[in-house]
C-alpha cells in the first residue's frame, strides 16, 4: 500500500479514494440511493430489499454514512406506523461523483501517477 508509482515525465497525483464509500456495502447503499431523485426518500425495509443486506448490517453502514453526512435518516409516522426514510444528501451525491471520477483517473492514468502524500 505504501510506495507510490512515480515517473519523472508526468508527475500526476493519485486521487484520494473516499474510504467511507470505498467499502463495497456502503458503495452499494450510496449507488442505490443515487438512482433516486434528489429529494426522494426510500423506506428502510425497501432499501434493505434493494441492497440485499440484513437490517443490522444496513443500520451499521447507514450510521457510518450518516456520520459522514452522506445520508439523511428520518424517522416519522405513516398511518400511525413508525417508518424510517433514508435519502442521499447533496454531500453524499457529490462524494459518489468524486469517487467515480477518482476511480476513472486511477484506471486511465495509474502508470504515470504518483501519490498525493509524496507531495508531487
Amino acid at each position: 500500500m505504501g510506495g507510490g508509482v512515480s515517473t519523472k515525465a508526468a508527475p500526476a497525483v493519485i486521487p484520494r479514494l473516499d474510504p467511507i464509500i470505498h467499502a463495497q456495502p456502503r458503495l452499494r447503499v450510496v449507488v442505490a440511493l443515487a438512482t433516486l431523485g434528489e429529494r426522494d426518500q426510500i423506506a428502510f425495509p425497501r432499501l434493505q430489499e434493494v441492497v440485499g443486506m440484513t437490517a443490522g448490517n444496513l443500520s451499521t453502514h447507514l450510521r457510518k454514512l450518516e456520520e459522514a453526512a452522506y445520508v439523511k435518516v428520518e424517522k416519522t409516522y405513516r398511518r400511525r406506523t413508525p417508518v424510517t426514510y433514508i435519502s442521499l444528501t447533496r454531500a453524499g451525491r457529490r462524494a459518489l461523483e468524486d469517487y467515480t471520477a477518482a476511480l476513472q483517473t486511477l484506471l486511465t492514468e495509474a502508470p504515470s501517477l504518483t501519490r498525493e502524500e509524496d507531495g508531487s
Partner: peptide, 23 residues
C-alpha cells in the same frame, strides 16, 4: 468483493455500472 474489503479500481467501476443498472 467480500464485504469491507478494498476492491480494485476496475472492479469498483464495473460494480458501480452494474449496480446502477440493477437498482
Amino acid at each position: 468483493c467480500p464485504d469491507d474489503a478494498s476492491p480494485s479500481v476496475g472492479a469498483s467501476l464495473s460494480f458501480i455500472t452494474a449496480w446502477r443498472r440493477q437498482t
